[in-house]
Each structure stands twice: as C-alpha cells, then as structure tokens.
Design a protein around this nucleic acid. Sequence first.
DNA 1: GCTTATTATGAATACTTGCTCACGTTCTAC
DNA 2: GTAGAACGTGAGCAAGTATTCATAATAAGC
Lengths: 201, 201
Amino acid sequence: MRRKPSQERSRQVVEALIEATAQTIAQRGLAQTTTNHIAARAGVSVGSVYQYFGNKEELVGALLDKLVNDLGQAVDRGLPLLLDADLRTIVRGLLQAGFAFVGGNEKLYLELARNWDQLSTQRFLRTLERHLQEVFRLYALRHYREMHIDNLPVAVFVVTNSMVFTILQYLSLPQAPCTRETLMDELTEMAAGYLQRRAAP
Amino acid sequence: MRRKPSQERSRQVVEALIEATAQTIAQRGLAQTTTNHIAARAGVSVGSVYQYFGNKEELVGALLDKLVNDLGQAVDRGLPLLLDADLRTIVRGLLQAGFAFVGGNEKLYLELARNWDQLSTQRFLRTLERHLQEVFRLYALRHYREMHIDNLPVAVFVVTNSMVFTILQYLSLPQAPCTRETLMDELTEMAAGYLQRRAAP
DNA sequence: GCTTATTATGAATACTTGCTCACGTTCTAC
DNA sequence: GTAGAACGTGAGCAAGTATTCATAATAAGC
C-alpha cells in the first residue's frame, strides 16, 4: 500500500476498490480485469488506484487477504459445533460449510482458483490446511483409539487438496456428472475412510 | 490449421513449431510465451506461425493434441500388466506410471495445469478419466465380489481429480512436505480404500 | 479566512503483443 | 528452363493496458 489513508473518504475509496476488484474478477475474469475497469466500477479514477496500491498485483493481493481472513473466521465459527460428532459427520459438515462459504461468490472463487499459480492463491490453501490440521488434531486427541495418524500434516495435505480441487472441477464443469449431494457423499466416504483407516485394533 | 503443409520442409516447420511451443511454455510459462519467442526458438519467422496456425491458441491446441495422444498411449501400454493384480497394486502402478509420464517434462505439465481453465486442458483430464474408467470397469467385472460401485463414473471423477491435483500441488510446492514415495503411499491408501469400500458382504 | 496536507482526476505515456502483408526464396511440373 | 505454386521473412500495424504526473478539488489545522 503506497499511501496510508488517513481520512474517512480515502478509507472508503480503498474499500470500494477492493470490492470492485472482487466484482470485476467475478464478472470478467482475472485476465480481462484492468485497472481502468476496477476504477470505473468503484466510481473513482485510475489514478486513485495508484494512490493506495503500488500496482495491480497489490490490489488483488489485498482482496486475497480479505478473503483469507473471511475463510479463517468461517472455519473458526463452525469448528466447536463439530468436535463432538464422529469423523464422518465432521467431514460432511466441513464440506457443507465449504460449499456455503463459496456460496454467493462462486464465480469469484472459481476465477481465483483458475489462477492458483499466483502466490497469493496458495495462501488460501495453506490457511485452510492449517485450520483443518487443528480440527483433526483435536479429534485425534479425543478419539485416540479410533484414529491414530502418524503423519497428520501429510494426511491433511492430501485430503484438503483432493477435496478442494475436486469440488472446483465439479463447479467448473459445463454439465455436472452428479448432484451436489452425491458428490459430497462420495467425498465424505473417501476422506473419512482414509482418515479413519489406522484405527488401533 | 490454416494451410496444410504438403512439402517435407513445411512439415518439419510445423513439427518444430509445436516442439518450440512446448519448450517455450516450459521455460517461460504460458503467459510469457509469445508467438515471436516460439518462432525464434523454432528457427523460423513469426509469419510462418500464421502460415499453419490461425492463431496462438491453435498452436497451443496442437501441442495439447499431441500430449493427449501420448497420454492415451502410455495408459494403454501399462494397462494389461495391471489387471491381474489387486486394487491397491493397480492404483500404486497407475500413480507410478503417472509420475513417470510427467517425468522429463515436469515444468511443461505443471505450467499447462496452472492454466486448466483453457478448454484444452480439460480434454486431458477427460481422456484420463475415460481410460481409468475402463480400467476399473474391467477390474470390477473380474472381482465383482470385492468391488461393486453403483456409480463408477462419479467414483472415477472423484479419484482422478483428487490424484491429479494433489500431485500437481505437491510438485508445485516450494518445499515438499514429504517424500514422493510417502505421497504415493497415502494417495494409494485413500483411493484404494475408497474404491474397495462397497465390498459385497 | 488562509495555509498546508491529503486526496482525486484522467489525458498522456510507454510498453507489450498478436497478427498482417508485401516481398523474397525454394520447390515442382512440364 | 521457366512458370506458377508453395513457402519463408520480418518490419510494422493495431489494439490493449499498466502506470504516471501535472493539475484540481477537498479537508484539516490554526
């Protein structure tokens, strides 16, 4: 951020720019999103973009920061409700929460996912992994008889990426091969089965 | 393809262009790959590109066609060797074959995967899914006592995408969270466990 | 009210890149 | 050998876009 906004109006401009970035990406795609489009949608001139952001990338980065933050909050909100349930219910709940999170902004998330090479998108996955690792660590502690995974980080890595990318593929398919419910059932089956495998006999 | 090459030299130019496209994408990334770069690497002038390809996209499409073809052949070669083994061995074998296939051109495949939104990349996955569906259909026929999946296409969709994208993520990670062997073990565990779940009692 | 700091503007700049086209070269057929 | 077809060339065009900067408007401090 090139200049730190000190007055109220400038803070509103920054907010409007980030919001406009999200909308423009969702509507036109990241590649077709220009600084002029963003400025126009935010109701300011291009110059204002460079008042607060060094370049286009920083602006998108700021949007990502906001989304990563939202994600963290969403996970933390849903977490305590799940810990008493069994593994299958937890996974199903997490999937449901995931779909709900993407929910209204499906296009935006899909578009961001299409560009997961940009460093920033990776932060999203890392954050998600970190949170999920915490969930399963707590579960493993409570149910140490049913679940004892020697390498939790790797297991979470595998499950997280499998879930996320399969869902993204599903969402970006021109015509779905099954209902959303079916997909969630299958993913739950796969993930829960995998995570529960090493039950102490 | 705008003009069909009839002489030998022009056929060599077309081949050189496709090969140069692969190398340039691997080295500079798809976004930074310009028609001028490709022509230069192929040792011809830009004009020649448009002699045989309507635009840049067609050129990349031709490369994709070649790769999809390679993939099909690779799967077909390895297939008969696997059918007598058990599910776990099959999955492990497929993963091994997958890594071997990507092998030398890791950067190219990674770069293409980063742009999976382009329609063409999807053909790759579809082809893979189709082949794998055939593998598991045959397996299910032989071992109908151990594996009875009511919706094979969906199961294959889930497994394929989970494997492919988890591996791609693994490969694009700056520092790996585990060895390649460990990753394959875990993926095998997850996939084989999932596919075998519905054993008739 | 006056001064100074902050904020907003948008035409102009600088640069990239896909693609064309007029011209030169090589091949083929007779 | 020569005409005509196929092929190759690369400077330059056209279109788009990130970024700047001189100028103007607005707010804050006194």
